[in-house]
């Protein structure tokens, strides 16, 4: 009986791992293809793509595509721009959206249900619909720069950061998470003399690690993958992010090997960031609805 159930358990475990491995493979194959292709000359890459060789480091393997990519585009500049824009937006967004979430979930004020509905309603509006009005507005907004008052935000970092700091999804994530934190903790802190800002900074935020990680990852991905907006508002090379940089490889002749090398390089920061926050991200998903 004991052995039987033991065998059964082993079999089930085997099947489970098999299924998980297959699912993992489906997600990993495009990445493997990208990295392998980045090591091959364009000609061979196109031939290999019809067979399983596409996923294997075979044939004429070299790092040539990487050196070529650096020649063709200022890769380091684009990656640095993207990291700066993404990092700044993520940090400011976590701060602003968590404060908004705190206000809606914890404080009591008239009309907050309406405000939350309005914020959620923004989730149904695709960015493309507001892109053009936003562009027109951005071109006329004032800014106090080094040379005094300027008009127009185009060709800058701020135009790629500020419109994306507050967003409905991040606010909603914080609202939900804060609502699940037992109200006794907030009341105890209040009774002990904490101000609302201390309740936010000393009680709620330290308990919100999982949701901070989740919001940070989601925001990071959105910001790092920005394409349409920077294409519209940035003409100067100096402010371009990575995906707009991809255009450099489609001019004249399309060099697939170099594109793959470029993509491989710009994927690295995303993977590093995800691995860094992975544990908290998974904890957040696993603990949805579980009280702190």
């Amino acid at each position: 009986m004991n052995t039987l159930s033991h065998d059964n358990h082993g079999l089930r475990l085997f099947v489970r791992y098999l299924v998980l491995t297959l699912i993992a493979a489906i997600f990993v194959f495009p990445l493997v293809f990208m990295v392998m292709s980045s090591l091959k000359p364009s000609q061979q890459l196109l031939i290999d793509s019809g067979s399983l060789r596409a996923f294997l480091p075979v044939g004429d393997i070299s790092l040539n595509n990487y050196t070529m990519a650096f020649d063709r585009a200022p890769v380091a500049l684009f990656v640095a721009n993207s990291l700066f824009i993404t990092g700044t937006t993520v940090i400011l967004s976590l701060f602003v959206c968590s404060l908004a979430g705190f206000s809606i979930a914890i404080l009591s004020w008239r009309g907050k249900a309406f405000v939350l509905s309005a914020i959620l309603a923004t989730l149904t509006v695709p960015f493309e619909t507001i892109a053009v009005p936003l562009l027109l507005m951005s071109s006329k907004l004032p800014w106090i720069g080094m040379d005094g008052l300027e008009v127009g935000w185009l060709n800058s970092y701020r135009v790629q950061i500020i419109p994306f700091i507050a967003d409905g999804l991040t606010i909603f994530l914080f609202v939900q998470y804060f609502r699940d934190i037992p109200s006794d903790l907030v009341e105890a802190a209040r009774a002990e003399g904490a101000s609302w800002s201390q309740v936010y900074s000393k009680v709620l935020m330290p308990l919100s690690g999982p949701i901070i990680a989740t919001a940070a990852i989601l925001k990071f991905l959105v910001m790092y993958n920005q394409y349409l907006w920077p294409l519209m508002v940035v003409q100067e090379e100096g402010y371009r992010p990575v995906l707009v940089g991809l255009q450099y490889f489609f001019q004249l002749n399309t060099a697939w090997g170099e594109i793959m090398a470029y993509l491989s390089m710009i994927t690295v920061p995303v993977l590093v960031f995800y691995l860094f926050l992975q544990r908290a991200f998974i904890a957040s998903i696993a603990s949805t609805g579980v009280k702190g």
């Binding site: 037992p182 903790l185 009341e187 009680v203």
Partner: peptide, 19 residues
């Protein structure tokens, strides 16, 4: 305000800060 009343409260759920 609660903090200025000179009271301290012990909650049923203890309400101690987990972090």
């Amino acid at each position: 305000a609660p903090k200025d009343r000179g009271v301290a409260m012990v909650f049923q759920s203890y309400a101690i800060f987990p972090h």
